[in-house]
Simulated assay, not measured.
Amino acid sequence: MTTNDNNNANMRIVWRLIAVVVFMGAAAWAAVPFYRWFCQVTGFAGTTQIATQQSDRVLDQTIRVRFDANVMPDLDWSFRPMQHEMTVRLGENVMAYYEAVNNSDQTLIGRSTYNVSPSDAGYYFEKIDCFCFTEQELAPGERIEMPLNFFVNPDMLDNRDASHIRDITLSYTFFRMDTQKSARAETGAPASTALN
């Protein structure tokens, strides 16, 4: 084997390794949006659904919905459900409220994540409107009531894995947006990008 053949073989190996690194980087970059899409489509891991309109049927069968609220330690807010639980009919459009209070002396922006348990109920828990769809900005000492408009899809009874569910817990966790964004909010400077 000549030196030229060795160089060509080495270059092929280098290009293959570069291709592997690029592929792995692209796969890592795509993993988060793909996982988010997968969860939204399937309700996997208790991910709730977004509805554009109310349910077209309401059943007499009821289900109990419990509400939970949490705040990450770096966000100086009080956050709580204004009702601890509700008994609702399947398909019934319902309004619930959460309360948030900024306990700090600065304007803070928060965003909530959410999930439903048991996770099989996530696919059937449909939100029409929710404070969790957008960021929430609270001035020092400000208190707000945040609405949640939802229904539990009656199709849940047709799923053998979910038809036995009689209690659902909806849990929200608020976390603080980055400090630069909070500083822009206090000074009135425009934000350069929005959170996805």
Rank of each mutant, 00 (worst) to 15 (best):
M1V: 12
D5M: 05
A9P: 08
M11I: 08
L17A: 14
I18R: 07
V20T: 13
V21P: 02
V22F: 14
F23H: 09
F23K: 12
F23L: 15
G25Y: 15
G25Q: 15
A27M: 14
W29P: 04
W29R: 12
W37N: 00
C39W: 13
Q40I: 08
T42V: 04
T42Y: 07
T47A: 09
T47M: 08
T47V: 00
Q49W: 04
Q49H: 08
I50R: 15
I50T: 15
A51C: 03
A51Y: 03
T52D: 14
Q54H: 04
Q54N: 09
S55T: 04
D56R: 14
R64C: 11
R64I: 12
R64M: 13
F67M: 11
A69Q: 01
V71E: 10
M72D: 13
P73R: 04
W77D: 11
W77Q: 06
P81A: 07
M82L: 12
M82N: 11
M86C: 04
V88T: 07
R89C: 11
R89K: 09
L90I: 03
G91L: 04
G91S: 01
A96P: 00
A96Y: 02
E99D: 02
V101A: 06
N102H: 07
N102Q: 06
S104I: 03
Q106A: 10
Q106W: 05
L108K: 00
L108P: 05
I109T: 11
G110K: 07
G110N: 03
R111M: 11
T113D: 10
Y114I: 08
V116Q: 05
P118T: 06
S119W: 09
S119T: 12
S119C: 03
D120Y: 03
Y123L: 11
Y123T: 01
Y124W: 09
Y124C: 01
E126S: 01
I128R: 09
F131E: 02
F133N: 12
F133K: 15
E135D: 07
E135L: 07
E137N: 10
E137D: 06
L138G: 10
A139V: 01
G141D: 02
E142I: 00
E142K: 13
R143Q: 10
R143C: 06
M146N: 04
P147N: 10
L148T: 10
F150T: 02
F150Y: 15
F150K: 05
V152D: 01
V152H: 05
D155G: 01
M156N: 02
L157S: 09
D161I: 12
D161V: 14
D161E: 14
D161S: 11
S163E: 15
H164I: 04
R166D: 13
D167S: 12
D167Y: 12
I168M: 00
L170A: 06
S171P: 08
S171E: 13
T173L: 07
R176D: 08
R176I: 02
D178L: 00
T179C: 01
Q180F: 10
A185E: 09
E186V: 05
E186H: 05
E186Y: 02
T187D: 07
G188F: 01
A189T: 00
P190N: 08
P190F: 02
P190I: 01
T193S: 13
A194F: 13
